[in-house]
Amino acid sequence: MKHLLSTHDLALHDALRLLDTAEEMAAVGEREIKKLPALRGRTVVNLFYEDSTRTRISFEAAAKRLSADVINFAAKGSSVSKGESLKDTAQTLEAMSADAVVIRHPASGAPARLAASGWIDAAVLNAGDGTHEHPTQALLDAFTLRRHWAKVAGTGSPGSDLTGMRVLIVGDILHSRVARSNVWLLKTLGAEVTLVGPPTLLPVGVDTWPCTVRYNLDEALADRPDAVMMLRLQAERMNAAFFPSTREYSRRWGFDDARLAALDTLGLGDTVIMHPGPMNRGLEISAAAADSVRSTVLAQVRNGVSVRMAALYLLLAGGTHDHPAAPTVRENPALSPTKEPAV
């Protein structure tokens, strides 16, 4: 593994390695001295083309706990016309000997582009790209789910997966990088994923995803999920005619007090409620649900540091000569026989 760009191509073996390593990192987070020397002398650049204080400080804390040097680079306004191109920025970071670039970008695929372009030799970690993926968010969600699932089963978390766990992901799937990364990763880990949202906020092509799709949240809850992940409704969607009004959205797809009560009625004592944050209280999630004992919101934040430590450690700690298995990106597979329709 040279880069962490998506969960779509993350093998089970690598996913478990990340989660198991994160368990050890979590233990470090509970000690008095929360510092490890593993990445001493390594430089991690947080290259953020979008504001996201939460994700940035999580990566920053992770890198610092591993003793890496951290450079924060806020690079908003990235278009060729407005400022420096991604290429020039990348080459600048290369000249500064960055060992890893943690990139957050409004354009889907920007991290993949950075990793495959040859502009930079550093490991690339996707910290959220457009409406594509947010792999470390999915890893921290999976980490949180796995600990819960192991606790319910009365077993240990390390080495285990999510076989049999039923997870609902609710809201704006179309524009959600969190949803995409979770669908692939949770499926890889053996969970049964159901997406719930208004049809306008489910992508064309979702029928090919390894999950179930429903439009009715109450029916989905009646199917006894083990976890309900509520997605944030972005402000810019609210006025774009994807649904009639936020009130109607909230009534049909929000996790409100009635649905919180329904979990009790259904006898779902172990079902947790997740949210990647920041929350729109009263819109996609009620205050009571957000603050209930079922809520894993703060555990998710805490686990984010552990998971990012694991990712940084596994990508950076080893020698640079040890990546013979790193996929060489064949830029132009157009004529490969499988891509060609039979005639």
Binding site: L36, Y313, A317, G319
Partner: peptide, 15 residues
């Protein structure tokens, strides 16, 4: 593992 002085000389090992 996380304290070794030869991390960079070897393939990454999970702790």
């Amino acid at each position: 593992t996380l304290y070794r002085d030869d991390l960079q000389r070897n393939p990454t090992r999970p702790p």
